Amino acid sequence: MPLGRGYLALAALATTGGLAACGREQQTYCADQNGVVVPDVRCDDGSPGYYYYTGSYGRGRRPGYRLGGGSRIASTDSNGRARAGLPSTGHVSNGHVTSGGFGSSGHGSSGG
């Protein structure tokens, strides 16, 4: 039995939408525990209370901007950083871009 045109169009649309979600860009910013962006060097020195927030925030967020949603990873959590697609150690610039995908919002940890 042949498939109808409507069914094929719906299947193509669902597949295209699913593939688009796989390539969604995620930006990473250094922020305090309240999600307020701070200079990225604050996450470099291992000071408690600073986190990498990764999500679909857009580029160019400056210190003072409050981020909403996304994943939060303690700046000192090398395993969490690696799971989020960041280098496990070293400097990460504000606005660093990684590719998202299915389950991308689930990585990272609160780190305390």
Rank of each mutant, 00 (worst) to 15 (best):
V38A: 03
H107L: 10
P2D: 04
M1N: 06
V38M: 01
G17Q: 01
G17T: 01
S56P: 02
G111N: 06
A20Q: 13
L19C: 06
N79P: 00
G106P: 01
G112N: 15
Y57F: 15
G58A: 04
D45F: 11
Y7I: 00
H107Y: 15
Y51H: 11
T98S: 09
G46K: 13
T54C: 01
P39H: 13
H91R: 15
N94Y: 03
G18A: 05
I73M: 11
D40G: 07
Y51T: 05
A82E: 12
D44T: 09
L10K: 04
G111A: 04
A82D: 11
Y52E: 06
F102C: 10
S56Q: 10
S99Q: 14
G85K: 05
R59L: 14
R81F: 11
L67I: 01
V37P: 01
G112R: 15
A74H: 05
T98Q: 12
N94L: 04
Y7H: 01
G18Q: 03
A14V: 12
G55R: 03
S104H: 14
N94T: 05
P63S: 02
P48M: 10
Y50G: 02
Y53M: 10
R59P: 02
L19M: 12
S75Y: 10
N34T: 03
H107F: 15
V38W: 02
D77G: 13
Y57Q: 07
P39R: 12
V97G: 02
P48C: 02
L19K: 01
G68M: 08
C30Y: 09
T98H: 00
P63M: 08
R61Y: 00
S71T: 07
V41T: 14
P2M: 02
P63W: 01
S71M: 12
S105Q: 10
Y7F: 08
G100T: 11
A31V: 11
G111Y: 04
R72E: 04
G46I: 07
R61A: 07
D45A: 04
Q33Y: 08
R61M: 05
Q26Y: 03
L10N: 03
A84T: 08
S93I: 07
G95F: 08
R83C: 06
S110Y: 14
T98V: 15
G85Q: 11
G4F: 00
T28N: 06
N94D: 15
A31I: 07
S75G: 14
R59A: 13
G90R: 11
G55Q: 10
T98C: 01
E25W: 03
H107I: 12
A82F: 12
R42W: 03
T16V: 11
A21P: 00
G85R: 08
L8M: 08
Q33A: 14
S109F: 07
T28F: 05
R66N: 02
R81L: 06
N34R: 11
